[in-house]
Amino acid sequence: MASVGDESCQTYSGASERMSEEIMAVSPEDPGENEISRLNFIKVAVGGMCLAYAAAVGYPIYRYLNSPVQREAALSAVKDVTLAGADKLEKGAVLLFKFGPYPSMLIHHKDDSWVAFDAVCTHLGCTVQYHPEQDKIVCACHGGVYDSHTGANVSGPPPKPLTRFQIKVANGAVTVTRA
């Protein structure tokens, strides 16, 4: 069936006006030409019907399979997340949290500065980890290293720095905001 549709697409590229022009252009004295256009018409009609059926069956299946993707996409649209009690995080410690669907990290540095990053390695998407003793963010998958203050990719395969979030430390909570 698909081959019928393909052929007809090559012949007509789906323009019905062109077809009616051709049917009208056929003079009654020329029955042979008429036959061909009738055959082509059937080919286009059958091909079109097959496409319509494939779309009518395929669209609900696509939406069905895509449903959780859509829900997560809606989740990832969140602009900020409030981490209750995170202000109590000790110096030199890290807190992993979910920002929308993605893992993210909040670091309270020894110099009392706060920083938050997207914890997904920019190389191949592994979740990175904070090493307080070296004060580095490291990805165990392929040895990527990031600066723990700026998120800059320092060595290894990561092509880009980690996305950095804005932070507001208040009494009782830390609010992380996407720029």
Binding site: P60, I61, R63, Y64, N66, S67, P68, Q70
Partner: peptide, 9 residues
């Protein structure tokens, strides 16, 4: 009730 077109499948 939640998944798109789940009722139809």
């Amino acid at each position: 009730y939640d998944v798109d077109f789940g009722w139809l499948i």
